[in-house]
Design a protein around this nucleic acid. Structure first.
Lengths: 218, 218
DNA sequence: TAGATTGTTAATCGATTAACAATC
DNA sequence: TAGATTGTTAATCGATTAACAATC
């Protein structure tokens, strides 16, 4: 009887955050016809160190071959499996303003395995307007759109003042993964994963460094 | 002669990334009429721990009062000063597709002290079209728009395949801070700060956790 | 004075890095 | 076999946390 191999499957957050980058680079490498890739080459393309690449990949399993490198096709599959990239994640976007419209039309989501299942907004003037394959519907349709499918990912692009209400409604509808572009902290119960991308904060982090460089002797 | 106070002005990256959040919360608190705030209250509103708030703020200086808390007005000013928020950072957006248009119209940039000085795109069909106060111009106008002003922040929203070329052009034009929404790693010389926000990667990090929860015994 | 809350310390935790034995 | 490259170790670095003396 072979030993039941129970790997300590605890992948560090920092590693998880880099897996999508590796995945993207590997897709490009495959596209370019590469059969194998070394940690050195993948590191170069991903903008990290080779040491980091090897350590990160070692958390997933032993997929490399010493003296050779990693099989591109296999590594794409393994990282995709780890990230749960089944190629078919439903997303619902709430808030069809400038940003929501841009997200709805963004080809990058479709290309990376996501499909929109609903576009919601509470402005009656927007209801019924068509965006791609979808009609804009009221936010109250959230439960209907999700329909108990806990794999649906909620995307929030409403003004900050409305974001918490939308997040609450998403949680009530059974959503457990939320990506918000509203510049405000969101509270959510333990089982719900929330990521906030604040575009202005990203710029402000840049101004900090710029400011440090231009006025070094503050 | 008073001792020349030379504080070890090295602020950790993790702290810098949180300063915009504190700043935003403090603006809200000020709006709500709060004169002072405790680390506990600011932590609650910022979604972090009180210990973290105090440690972070201690890197900036000694701005709190024991037994009382922090003066909201003063803390807004101090964090703003640290981030270099002069209320007038010029940004140029290259790539006026869905996302670029949304960014150009995004009120959050204006509200947080940024102003657009140029909208550029290499599609001739877009040239001359008006977006807010600006006409869309060819990317070749970059040097002219920047005009040697190294405080200009470059925002990239072109397809991944074109992003490195745009980044190179920005660097040539004298830009030293770049925020890219193109899903690709960007190479830049040492003095140039680059941040990449990859929208699809953000979703993929969520699918990892979702996948872990739904298929715990992989 | 008594109660509240900061600023800082020290311990812990997690992430990065360099080095190299293992091995293809 | 010789050269290349992984997987892993151990050291280092940076960030978080809890605790509490200082002090308003």
């Amino acid at each position: 009887v072979p030993d039941v191999n129970r790997p300590p499957r605890r992948i560090p957050d920092a590693t998880v955050a880099r897996l999508p980058v590796y995945h993207r680079c590997l897709l490009e490498l495959r596209e370019a016809g590469a059969a194998t890739v070394s940690s050195e080459a993948l590191a170069e393309q991903s903008g990290v160190t080779a040491s980091k690449v090897r350590k990160d990949l070692s958390y997933l399993g032993t997929y490399g071959t010493r003296g050779v490198g990693y099989d591109v096709e296999n590594l794409v599959r393994q990282i995709g499996r780890e990230l749960g990239l089944t190629g078919n994640w439903p997303i619902v976007i709430v808030g069809i303003g400038n940003l929501g419209r841009a997200l709805a039309a963004y080809g990058g989501f479709t290309a990376r395995g996501f499909r929109i299942v609903g576009l919601l907004d509470d402005d009656p003037a927007k209801h019924g307007s068509r965006l791609g394959d979808h009609l804009v519907r009221p936010t109250s349709a959230l439960a209907e759109v999700v329909a108990g499918d806990t794999s649906v990912i909620g995307v929030i692009a409403v003004p900050a003042a409305a974001a918490q209400d939308v997040a609450d409604a998403m949680v009530r509808a059974g959503i457990t993964s939320i990506l918000s572009f509203s510049p405000t902290v969101l509270a959510a119960p333990p089982g719900v994963a929330v990521r906030v991308v604040d575009l202005a904060s990203e710029l402000q982090i840049l101004t900090f460094h710029q400011h440090q460089r231009t006025e070094p002797a503050a």
